[in-house]
Measured scan of single mutants.
Amino acid sequence: MQRVNMIMAESPGLITICLLGYLLSAECTVFLDHENANKILNRPKRYNSGKLEEFVQGNLERECMEEKCSFEEAREVFENTERTTEFWKQYVDGDQCESNPCLNGGSCKDDINSYECWCPFGFEGKNCELDVTCNIKNGRCEQFCKNSADNKVVCSCTEGYRLAENQKSCEPAVPFPCGRVSVSQTSKLTRAETVFPDVDYVNSTEAETILDNITQSTQSFNDFTRVVGGEDAKPGQFPWQVVLNGKVDAFCGGSIVNEKWIVTAAHCVETGVKITVVAGEHNIEETEHTEQKRNVIRIIPHHNYNAAINKYNHDIALLELDEPLVLNSYVTPICIADKEYTNIFLKFGSGYVSGWGRVFHKGRSALVLQYLRVPLVDRATCLRSTKFTIYNNMFCAGFHEGGRDSCQGDSGGPHVTEVEGTSFLTGIISWGEECAMKGKYGIYTKVSRYVNWIKEKTKLT
């Protein structure tokens, strides 16, 4: 034993070699072989497995989906700052455009905790909710729209109204504003409101030439003092309507412009014939205590009207009353817009006519005020429907199939267009061939041609 100890002390290297040989010859039971080890760690190889990531292109799944990435790591994937920024906006807080917040056709661009709407022409605001041009839906104005110097929408209202708090709607500024039905039992019968379409306001006024200088022999019209197929109006439903009495009662109609003036057809009036105007009328054979009678003290036909040349060209006249009318729910003026808007309103496509005229061709006159909704007829169809001249200051309205029309005794009465609950004068009943005849239409004086003249002559002093 002493000898062994001496050998170990003198030859430590020998001992180490012996131990190493023993270990190498022993069977290893701690580690699995290569094949079995792979069965336990069965993990798919990654895209760049075996390579240094710093030297390969980034992978979106590896960089940002398996674990949260930084902007720089995302930049490695896209290799483009702009594309990385677009991805980053949604990656950080989701897609803010998912709810489609942009209105009126706006395009949404996502941002971090926010979004941006790219608005089409005519709109602005956070969600493109603000109209900035009158060309689109009248700028959301209830009545009139004008573009300011910086191309912003400025709404306005006709006389007797003021802008509401929203700067879009119009509200009454006087007790009985024009064009409004205020009798409670008839307010439910107000005709369907007309909503502004998209309009090209630059070209809204037709490029028409008034044929002022045409000389033409007097034409022989049949029954051209021209509501057939209409309905009984309720008291106060058309408070701007008046009836004219002269040699015979209810020979023509008219509309209240203001307390002192009536507008009617020029062919209705004769110099030297006494005319009485009755406002607030409903049943011409009954006294309903809503009527107001006034005498006409002055007749002003349009300066281009000449019955000797043509009885229905420039067929418009103004009547001055001896005493002002007292405005109330049964006696209310009709609204008159400017030339541009009167023309736009007419193009809405349908209007209402009213009167006490004959209820059928050569038949009896109506006792109760009649009204009828009539569609506008395109000019080409209008011209083809008659052998008589249709001037540019006239328009056609009615039904091709016949059966409904204005008729004798309705002449001078109103053709009105309702705009968001307020009625505007767009025409004056003038003439036609018979009444409600198939293929024939009622012919009306186009008020847009005469609004400046009306307003100039009827100013209240």
Rank of each mutant, 00 (worst) to 15 (best):
N452W: 05
G246H: 07
F360I: 15
Q96F: 14
G254S: 01
C134T: 03
Q57N: 01
E129S: 05
T29Y: 12
T81W: 08
K68S: 06
E320R: 02
G403W: 15
W431C: 12
N304M: 14
I256D: 00
P414S: 08
L319C: 07
V228H: 09
P375M: 11
F238T: 04
Y330S: 03
K89C: 06
K293M: 05
A337P: 03
N306P: 02
I7Y: 11
I336M: 06
K137C: 05
V368P: 08
A366L: 08
I17R: 03
L318S: 00
E10W: 13
L372D: 09
F348E: 14
V30I: 13
D95A: 11
I275A: 04
M65E: 06
R226K: 10
Y352L: 09
Y341W: 07
I300K: 03
A149M: 11
S107N: 13
I112Q: 14
K455E: 05
Y371L: 10
E79Q: 15
V174H: 07
N283W: 08
L52H: 08
G413H: 10
N135R: 12
C157V: 00
K45E: 02
L318H: 01
V242A: 05
R379D: 12
M8N: 13
S406V: 07
T426V: 01
G402P: 09
R140Y: 07
F224P: 15
V243Y: 15
L24Y: 11
L376Q: 06
E433Y: 06
K293Y: 15
G413C: 08
R83G: 09
L60K: 04
W453Y: 02
C178K: 00
I7D: 06
H415F: 15
V451H: 04
L32Y: 14
N38K: 13
A233E: 05
L23Q: 03
V92Y: 06
V56W: 00
E10V: 15
G122N: 12
Q167P: 03
L372E: 11
L369H: 14
V277Y: 01
F176D: 03
L24H: 05
L383S: 15
W88V: 04
R404W: 15
G254M: 00
F71H: 04
V368F: 05
P177Y: 01
L321M: 07
V263F: 02
F144D: 00
R384L: 09
P239D: 00
N166F: 02
N80C: 04
T342F: 00
E208L: 13
A380P: 09
A250W: 07
L41C: 03
R75T: 09
L327M: 13
T417R: 02
P175Q: 06
V227A: 12
D338G: 08
E54Y: 00
Y441A: 06
T381V: 13
R46Q: 01
F78N: 03
K45Y: 01
T271N: 15
F424I: 01
E10R: 04
P177V: 05
Y391A: 12
Q219W: 09
R384Q: 15
N304K: 09
I429A: 15
Q370A: 04
I316R: 00
W88K: 03
N245H: 12
Q216K: 06
L372W: 15
N135F: 11
D95Y: 11
D223S: 12
I344K: 13
K459C: 11
K188T: 07
R404P: 15
S25G: 12
A265D: 01
I256G: 01
Y91T: 04
P235S: 07
V195L: 14
E98R: 11
P333A: 06
L189C: 07
N328C: 04
C435F: 03
S350V: 12
K438L: 11
K109S: 08
T389M: 08
L325W: 04
G229Q: 15
V296H: 01
N295C: 04
V447Y: 00
P414A: 11
P375F: 11
A173C: 06
K362Y: 06
K188I: 13
L52M: 14
F360K: 15
I275S: 03
